[in-house]
Design a binder for these strands. Structure first.
Lengths: 234, 234
DNA sequence: GACGTTTTAGACAATGGCGTCTAATTTTAC
DNA sequence: GTAAAATTAGACGCCATTGTCTAAAACGTC
C-alpha cells in the first residue's frame, strides 16, 4: 500500500558502506515499525522484512528486542536534538520585522522538530513506553525540550533587553511561544498528520501575532504593520 | 505496587447491581490495562485479574479482544465528552473579575478534561491505535475537541460583544486559550503525570494573564489589577 | 428450598513471536 | 584468488496469548 522506500534509497547522502549501512537500515525500519505498532506490537520479523534484512542479522547487531528498541530511541533522540538546536540557531537576532522573522522561526520549529517524523515517533513512544523506560526518556526530556525552553527564554530575554519585547517571565513566555505555535495544529499533532506548508505558515502567523500582542512593545506593534487588523478578518 | 482499588470500591455512587456491576468493572479495568500496555500489549488475563473476574466472564460480555477494546474506548469517550460539556457550562458569563473567573475555568478544564485519567487514556490511545480505528476516534474528535473549540469561540464572541475582550478571530482565540492553558503543563501531559493543584492554578494564571494581555480590553486590564506586573516577578 | 442464570477455574488447541542454531551463500579485505 | 567476516533462509524449542469448552460453584428470584 504505502510505497516504502528500499533501504538503499532511504539512506540519503554519504553512503556509509559495510555493516554500517545495514545498521542504519535496521534502525530506520525499526523506528518505523515501533512507531506504528508500539514495542509490544512490533515483531522482529516485520522489522527485518521492512529493512530487507534477515532476522538473524538483527540479532547479530542487537542482543534482543529491547536492546534494539533502546538503540532506536537513542538514535532518534540524537537526531531530534541535533535538529532542534539547528533550528534554535536560526532564532532572529535583530528586532526588525520581528513578526515575520518570528513567524518564519515558528514555522521551522514546527515543521522540523514537532510535526516531522522524529517528533511524532518521540511523542508516541514517550507516551506509550515512557513509564517502562523512565531514564531512557528522562535524558531526552532534559536535553531536548528542557534545553529548548532554556535557550528560547534566553533568546527572548535578549530581545527584551533590546527593547523589542516586554516580558515579565522569560521562561513562561518561552513555553507560551511554543504552545501558541501548536495551537492550530494540536489535532494534527495528536494524530501524527503532516500539515501542509500553508497550514504551517498560517498557524505560525496566528501564534506570533498573539504572542506579540501580549509581549510586543506597544508602539512598535502598530508602527510595523498598521494594516494588521484589517488583513486578518479575510 | 500501585494500590489498585477493588472493583467494588471503584464504582462510586449508585451501585448498579447484577451483571452491570461486572460489566463496569471489566470496562474500568480494561481501560486501565489498555492504557498502560496498549492494545497489543494488554492481555485478557491481566484485565480479568485486575477486574477480579474470570476470563470467561469477559468473553461472556464481549465476543473478542477487539470488541472489548472498542467498548472501552466508546465508554471513555462518552464520559470524557460529558465531562467536557459539564465544564463548558461553567464558562464565566459576566465580565467582572474576568481574570479570576477565566483562570478558575482554565483550571477546571485542565484538571477535569485534559490531565485526568480519561484525557490521558484518550490521548494515548488516539495516538497509538488511531490509525487502526479511524472512524472510532473520528467521531470523538468531532464531538469532543471539535465542539469544545466551537463552543469556546462562541463564548468568547459573547464576551467580546459585551466589550470585555477584543478578538479578531474567535476560533483562533479559542484554540489559543486552550493551548496557553497547556503551556506550562505540556511535559506533564505528555508523560501522563497528574499536576498538583498549585501547578494547575499557576499554569492557568499564567495562561489567562497572557491571553488577556493579547485579547483583553486595554483599559479594563490595568484598571482591574494594577499590581499585576509587580506580583509576577516573584 | 428449587430452578435458571451467571460466574468460575482450569484444561485445551491453535497461533504467533522470540531467540537460537546451522549450513549455505554472499560480501569484504588483502 | 583466497580467507575471514557478514548475511541469509529456514528449522527449532519455548513461551505467552487468544479463544473455546466443561463441570462445578455461586447467585438471584420466586
Amino acid at each position: 500500500m504505502k510505497d516504502r522506500m528500499t533501504p538503499a534509497a532511504r539512506m540519503t547522502g554519504h553512503t556509509q558502506r559495510g555493516q554500517c549501512a545495514k545498521r542504519m537500515s535496521i534502525l530506520d525500519s525499526a523506528a518505523d515499525v515501533f512507531c506504528r505498532q508500539g514495542f509490544a506490537g512490533a515483531s522482529i520479523d516485520e522489522i527485518a522484512a521492512v529493512a530487507c534484512v534477515s532476522r538473524q542479522t538483527i540479532y547479530n547487531h542487537y542482543r534482543e528486542k529491547e536492546t534494539l528498541f533502546v538503540a532506536v530511541v537513542e538514535d532518534v533522540m540524537n537526531r531530534a536534538n541535533a535538529m532542534l538546536f539547528s533550528v534554535l540557531s536560526t532564532f532572529p537576532e535583530r528586532a526588525d520585522d520581528l513578526e515575520d522573522e518570528l513567524t518564519a522561526f515558528a514555522v521551522r520549529l514546527n515543521k522540523n522538530c514537532i510535526c516531522n517524523h522524529d517528533g511524532k515517533f518521540l511523542r508516541k513512544l514517550v507516551q506509550t513506553e515512557g513509564e517502562r523506560y523512565p531514564h531512557l526518556f528522562e535524558s531526552w526530556r532534559q536535553q531536548g525540550p528542557g534545553k529548548l525552553i532554556t535557550a528560547l527564554s534566553a533568546l527572548f530575554a535578549r530581545l527584551a533587553h533590546k527593547g523589542a519585547l516586554v516580558i515579565d517571565d522569560f521562561d513562561v513566555a518561552a513555553r507560551q511561544f511554543v504552545a501558541l505555535g501548536n495551537a492550530d495544529l494540536q489535532m494534527m499533532i495528536l494524530l501524527g498528520a503532516t500539515p501542509t506548508d500553508e497550514e504551517l505558515e498560517k498557524a505560525a502567523r496566528n501564534a506570533v501575532r498573539t504572542f506579540l500582542k501580549a509581549y510586543g512593545r506597544p508602539e512598535a506593534e502598530q508602527a510595523g504593520h498598521p494594516s494588521q487588523l484589517a488583513a486578518i478578518s479575510g
